[in-house]
Design a binder for these strands. Structure first.
Length: 346
RNA sequence: UGGGGAUUCGCCAAGUGGUAAGGCAUCGGCUUUUGGUGCCGACAUUCGGGGGUUCGAAUCCCUCAUCCCCAG
């Protein structure tokens, strides 16, 4: 009997994932990954509640349940990475790093060592022949967050939810009477939870006043308390009013200055061409040519001409310019339904 | 110091006798397993202060204050 370790977060998706695998005849073990347990000012970390929920469902399903403690790894590989990137003035995507380093690496390794044959998670994605495919529910597809997983890891991974839509998942969870059937979807960076990225960062970074400058006139419009807290395309949090809305179009980390404009067509806001580094291919390296890309989770796929640069970076010529693509964000590349990999915007 | 103009929510800005538009910002919510975007809702009993005219004024008159422009 195939032994599967299911990552259970205490949410509906992973709960149903475990239930489906049991029904499919696998020998299922539920695993709660303890990645972050710190409370933050103004927000209680929900890990204890999530753990309790995951455990309840495991009991309901009559499966074994374990807790894997990855707090150190998570702090180093995900949180520190995120903070370092922000300090460089970039805008990282910690959840992608979490999948690369924790769920599909340490968790996978630990599970295999512990006797598992396969692992499973509640991601909306599909695997076929070691390839990563978009979920049937394209509206909910989460392959964007998974492009840094290796093809080898995928051969040992099951994504049972990839065949269903979110409403179906909720319905099935309800039919089975799972404790978590009615639980609200989590959102935002898992560990940051309810508080914003800004509040989180200010725990680790010193706040320093700087100027908000109008790119068009050069006038100082106001003050902010750290260029690190702003990202390109951002509108809110500037506290600058009068006439049209202002959007962030750039920043200077050295000078601690944030540049804004009311011009929606500003060149800095639109990227018809992207260069990505730290490129990762799930399977084999693709040939230059026509592909589709996605610049953020849930964005529609857009046609792209892919070519390779000297030094390994990849150049992407977009069919339509994308708005507010920040350095540090990920571009994920698709060939029809297959997610073939991607890279990080330079 | 003469002459002219201005003063409406944190910001921009309608409104010239009939009982305070709108936009930005902000706050709250929705959307979303990243940042961000977007959407919805809330947001001046009050119009620089004080008098007066009028049934009734932000809108007319007087006066004080502040700011701006031209003369010096």
């Amino acid at each position: 009997m195939t032994k599967v370790y299911v990552g259970m977060s205490g949410g509906v998706d992973s709960s149903l994932t475990a239930a489906l695998l049991v029904e499919q005849g696998y020998d299922v073990t539920g695993v709660y990954m303890k990645n972050w347990t710190q409370d933050l000012p103004g927000m209680k970390c929900p890990w204890a509640d999530d753990l309790a929920d995951a455990k309840r469902v495991a009991v309901q399903l009559g499966i074994d349940f374990k807790v894997f403690d990855f707090e150190n790894e998570y702090k180093q590989k995900v949180v520190d990475y995120m903070i370092d990137e922000y300090k460089l003035g970039r805008t990282p995507n910690p959840d992608i790093m979490c999948n690369q380093e924790v769920k599909f690496k340490i968790f996978l390794e630990t599970a295999l060592e512990d006797g598992a044959d396969l692992i499973a998670t509640g991601h909306y994605a599909r695997v076929a022949d070691g390839k990563l495919l978009q979920a049937v529910d394209t509206n909910k597809d989460q392959t964007y967050f998974l492009y840094r997983v290796t093809g080898e890891a995928l051969t040992k991974t099951l994504f049972p939810l990839g065949e269903f839509t979110k409403p179906e998942v909720r319905e099935m969870a309800k039919e089975r009477g799972l404790f978590t059937a009615g639980k609200k979807d989590s959102q935002g960076i898992c560990f940051v939870g309810q508080i914003g990225i800004r509040e989180f960062l200010s725990q680790y970074v010193e706040q320093k006043a700087g100027s908000i400058i109008d790119k068009q006139t050069g006038k100082v419009l106001g003050q902010h308390d750290g260029a690190i807290f702003y990202t390109i395309g951002q509108r809110h949090g500037l506290d600058v009013g009068g006439g049209l809305p202002y959007y962030v179009v750039g920043k200077d980390m050295e000078m601690n200055e944030v540049y804004v404009t009311t011009n929606l067509n500003d060149d800095a806001l639109w990227r018809p061409e992207l260069t990505i580094a730290s490129v990762h291919w799930i399977n084999e390296t693709p040939q230059p040519g026509e592909y589709q890309i996605r610049v953020r989770h849930r964005a529609t796929l857009i046609a792209t001409e892919l070519s390779f640069n000297e030094g390994g970076s990849v150049n992407l010529h977009l069919g339509n310019a994308e708005r507010a693509v920040a350095a540090g964000q990920s571009v994920v590349i698709y060939h029809d339904d297959v997610c073939i990999g991607g890279g990080i915007v330079s």
